Simulated scan of single mutants.
Amino acid sequence: MPIRLNVRCTAAQRAAGTEVGQKAAAAMIAARQNDGSAPAAPYTGSTQPGYWRPTGTGNGATPEWGKAKPFGIASSTQFRPAGPAGHTLMSTLLPNKAYADQVNDVKSLGGAASTTRTADQSTAALFWANDLDGTYKPPGQFFDHTQILSRQHGLTVAGNAKLFALTAFAMADAGVVAWDTKYQTDTDLWRPESAIRLDGDGNAGTTADPNWQPLSQDRNGNHFSPAFPAYVSGHATFAGAWAKATQDWFGTDQITWTATTEDPNALGVTRTFSSISAAATENAVGRVWLGVHYRWDGTGGVSAGANAAAYTSANRLKPNAAADWTKYEDLHNLAGCQEVGKRLVAEHRWTSYQCTQVQFPNPDHTLYVK
Rank of each mutant, 00 (worst) to 15 (best):
T272F: 03
A266H: 00
N283Y: 00
T270R: 10
A266K: 00
T260N: 15
T261I: 07
A266M: 02
A279E: 14
I276C: 05
F273H: 11
E282R: 10
T260V: 07
A259F: 03
W257G: 06
T252M: 10
G286F: 02
T261S: 08
D253Y: 09
F273S: 04
V285L: 12
W289F: 13
D263N: 10
T260F: 05
T256K: 14
P264S: 07
R271H: 14
F250I: 07
V269G: 00
A259N: 10
G286A: 08
E262M: 08
P264N: 13
T260C: 04
G251S: 15
N265G: 07
E282L: 11
L267N: 10
A279G: 07
Q254N: 15
T261Y: 01
V269W: 02
G286Q: 03
T258W: 04
F250Q: 10
L267K: 12
F250E: 07
S277E: 14
E282N: 12
V285N: 00
F273I: 05
A279M: 12
W257D: 03
P264T: 12
A278N: 13
S274M: 03
R271E: 15
G251W: 08
S274W: 04
G251E: 15
A259L: 03
G268E: 08
F250T: 07
R287E: 02
A280S: 13
W289H: 12
I255R: 14
T256S: 15
D263H: 01
E262K: 11
T252Q: 06
G251H: 13
T281Q: 15
D263V: 08
G251Q: 12
N265R: 13
W257K: 03
L267I: 10
N265K: 09
A278S: 15
T270W: 05
S277Q: 15
G286Y: 05
T261C: 10
G268T: 05
A280Q: 07
T261M: 03
T281D: 13
G251F: 06
L267C: 01
A279D: 11
G268P: 05
D253T: 02
V285F: 11
T270M: 04
D263P: 00
T260D: 13
A278P: 00
N283F: 00
T258R: 15
T252K: 07
E282F: 13
A284H: 08
E282Y: 11
E282K: 14
N265F: 00
T261V: 08
L267E: 10
L267P: 10
E262H: 13
A259Q: 05
A266L: 03
N283G: 01
I276G: 06
G251N: 14
D263A: 06
T258A: 08
A280T: 06
A259R: 01
T258C: 10
T261W: 01
T256V: 08
T270N: 12
